[in-house]
């Protein structure tokens, strides 16, 4: 390039931005694929219905190093019908796995809470495995100001 013109500079900047956004989109898609695969391993590829699961997580997390998350599933907790497990997954972390809670009829209530790390703004997905073999889900988007995972 000869001397810099205003138009040239703006054009180059726009190109750079386009390339940047393209790579970040690619990364996001890769993470989403991993997350889909991780969830499919848990469900054995079975259909997942919405409802019955209530995932609570702040819409805006200022500190991604410690984001409180809790989940409750609407279900009886008896030997004949109970919630076996709830898997929590993320689609914008280095790895999709967060935590899996395993309940028993003795749990009384299918409810659990923990604190997690989120590297950036992303979705958190809860999948509940019921004792009858069905699966239910809920998901929330969390805006993260400062990412966790030590990035």
């Amino acid at each position: 390039m000869g001397h810099l013109t205003r138009r040239g500079v703006i054009g180059a900047a726009a190109q750079g931005a386009a390339i940047l956004s393209l790579t970040s989109v690619r990364n996001a898609i890769a993470a989403t694929d991993d997350t889909a695969k991780y969830i499919a391993e848990f469900t054995g590829g079975k259909a997942i219905k919405t409802g019955r699961v209530n995932l609570s997580i702040p819409e805006l997390a200022e500190n991604g190093n410690m984001v409180p998350v809790s989940v409750v599933v609407d279900s009886p907790m008896t030997k004949d019908a109970y919630v076996k497990s709830v898997l929590l997954a993320a689609d914008g972390n280095p790895m999709p796995s967060l935590i899996t809670f395993n309940f028993s009829p003795m749990s009384g209530k299918a409810q659990a809470a923990a604190r997690i790390r989120l590297a950036q703004t992303q979705n958190v997905i809860a999948i509940a495995a019921m004792s009858d073999g069905s699966f239910f889900t809920d998901r929330k988007t969390v805006k993260v100001t400062i990412g966790g995972c030590g990035g």
Partner: peptide, 26 residues
């Protein structure tokens, strides 16, 4: 509880330091 499995959690590296867990029991 009294030797019978009540609850467990499989914990990934994405869980915050000093892991805190809350759950129920009947």
């Amino acid at each position: 509880f009294n030797g019978a499995p009540l609850f467990s959690a499989d914990i990934a590296p994405a869980v915050s330091s000093n892991p805190y867990l809350e759950f129920s029991a009947r």
